[in-house]
């Protein structure tokens, strides 16, 4: 296995990072809404949020991706497979992130919120200054592992014809007849990306902890 082949894998990993990065961000935005729905006191909204999370956490991502891929054209949306893949990944990760956020918000100690109330903070100020920062601090490790999970799962978009690291590895493996070194190299590239993400996660945790007991 030559350096040129390895370089092709590294280049393709840029697309993997792009697709998973975009999906994580879109997923986080969706997750904030779903989390708010789940924590809402309106019964129907809360149950809707829970159903959404249960469905996307209860079905294989491979099937979600294929479903989105075939469903979009059927309802008249002819989007490229890359967009379909990003939609599928975003929907899936939004459910996991929503569940993580819900756990975080629910473990913010009640005493903190009562204290904020006593100090005369408005509901908004109490959310922005107390609930949000504490919840973010509590959920950062879990959000980092979810980002790593999604990066790994993004390899599944290769089955709907999207070009990224795994697709490239598969093509190279069949054109060079060297599956073992090429898939091992692809695994190595994933591992390096994930170690970097984990490192950033730890940095973010440390930054969030600064100034807190």
């Amino acid at each position: 296995m030559s350096w040129e082949l390895f370089w092709l894998l590294v280049e393709a990993s840029g697309l993997t990072i792009l697709y998973s990065g975009v999906s994580i961000v879109i997923g986080f935005v969706l997750a904030s809404g779903i989390c708010a729905a789940m924590l809402s006191s309106h019964r129907l909204t809360a149950n809707g949020g829970r159903l959404y999370v249960s469905f996307f956490r209860g079905t294989p991502l491979l099937i979600q991706l294929l479903l989105v891929y075939y469903l979009l054209p059927k309802i008249g949306l002819n989007v490229p497979s890359e967009i379909a893949a990003i939609i599928g990944l975003s929907l899936s990760t939004s459910a996991y992130q929503a569940e993580i956020l819900r756990g975080g918000f629910q473990s913010v100690p009640r005493g903190l919120l009562e204290a904020a109330d006593m100090c005369g903070l408005s509901a908004f100020a109490s959310f922005r200054r107390i609930r949000l920062p504490v919840a973010v601090r509590l959920t950062l490790p879990a959000l980092t592992s979810e980002a790593i999970m999604l990066l790994k799962s993004s390899s599944l978009v290769s089955v709907v014809g999207v070009v990224e690291l795994t697709t490239m590895a598969k093509d190279l493996a069949s054109s060079t007849y060297q599956p073992l070194p090429i898939f091992a190299a692809a695994g190595l590239v994933y591992l390096i990306i994930n170690l970097v993400v984990a490192g950033f996660g730890r940095l973010a945790e440390r930054a969030a902890k600064r100034g807190h007991a």
Partner: peptide
Amino acid sequence: RGTPFLVQIYL
């Protein structure tokens, strides 16, 4: 834990 299941399966 750092590599995708699909890549492990291919390997």
